[in-house]
Amino acid sequence: MAAHPGGLTAVASSGTVRSAVGSSSGTAPATGAGNAVSVRNLIRSFGPKGVLNGVDLDIAPGEFVALLGPSGCGKSTLLRALAGLDHDVRGSGVISVPERVSVVFQDSRLLPWDSVLGNVTLGLREHDADSRARKALAEVGLAGREKSWPHELSGGEQQRVALARSLVREPQLLLADEPFGALDALTRIKMHGLLQDLVAAHRPAVLLVTHDVDEAIALADRIVVLDSGRVATVRTVTPEISTAVDAAGHEALRRDLLADLGVVGTSH
């Protein structure tokens, strides 16, 4: 279990951050007890403009949370803070995340000079890295493509390699920033099914950033809407609603979410 202040020296002085997940030390702080992710009063700004103005968020182990919000509302900023990628961003707050965190970006971000297999094993130190990577590639339906160059794959296949790369490390937390945003509608639906299967098999906590309401409903256990740099609404998705588009609450949830996002009038 590791906790990091999101790359901010200012936070380090404001108190030691510890998380209770999997902790045996018995000194677990009250906040975030039992959670995979715990964010308290996270503030981030670029220049004078505040992007995140005090975000609080908890994600339970194995829970799938979708983060919805209009473009530019700070979804990526939050995710990058969790991933520890915001080295030079000003702000404060307390973050705790598990030790093994994987990130999937909107672009597949495969190293163009490495084979598909080499991309999946990137950073693995275990001696059986290759066989594990082969297994992960088979899981995403790309067995036999180990030796291909990334540019020889379609966009959807490249993103599947990125999923294999993130899951081969058995993450306790999977952070995904609009991972299907660049894919066509049909491929996107297939990827939803694949992601569900993978998450069911590996059980990481997931934070999926998306601007697609239907994607959020289909995949998440809980949907968090970000607005004005804060968590504006949290909505739970029951399994019945997420699996059937014609389920009773589905359309209502969809309408509520669109209203949360300010897309349609709230007068339904």
Binding site: L85, S102, V103, R109, D114, L122, G123, R169
Partner: peptide, 25 residues
Amino acid sequence: LRYVELAQTVGLSRAAFIRKVVLPG
């Protein structure tokens, strides 16, 4: 820079970062 971020997220050591990202790049 996106590859540098990637290297960080997959936990590459400095030596591995040089070997896998810097030199080929």
